[in-house]
């Protein structure tokens, strides 16, 4: 994690936040843009989950991390706190790896 990355990310995030306030004086998002933007977070999160779980360097692979993800997902679905979801997913994966 380089400093350049941290400052670029901070600048970009602030740009969106302030940009919305400035733009609000002039415009409102069109219904279509509004729909695209509201779908952006779920689409990117879902893509991120897939890539981080199944991307084995350009090939699709299913490893022990998949089991960890499923256990964590099940816990989240049942309302487990965020920290427990992470610990369960990491713990199950680590345990399977040690076997």
């Amino acid at each position: 994690m380089s400093w350049l990355m941290i400052f670029s990310l901070a600048g970009g995030c602030y740009f969106f936040k302030l940009g919305g306030l400035v733009a609000a004086d002039r415009t409102r998002p069109t219904p279509r843009l509004d729909r695209v933007l509201s779908g952006l977070t779920p689409a990117v999160l879902a893509g991120l989950i897939v890539v981080q779980t199944f991307d084995g360097g350009g090939t699709l692979n299913v490893g022990v991390g998949t089991v960890g993800l499923l256990v964590g997902g099940l816990a989240a679905r049942r309302g487990a706190p965020f920290g427990w979801v992470l610990v369960l997913a990491a713990g199950v994966t680590a345990a399977l790896r040690l076997l």
């Binding site: 991120l48 993800l69 997902g73 679905r77 994966t93 680590a94």
Partner: peptide, 16 residues
């Protein structure tokens, strides 16, 4: 040891 699974599980919790 299980960090690679902790991140996607966290993203799943954020997605739900």
């Amino acid at each position: 040891w299980g960090l690679d699974a902790a991140f996607p599980a966290g993203f799943l919790a954020l997605l739900l």
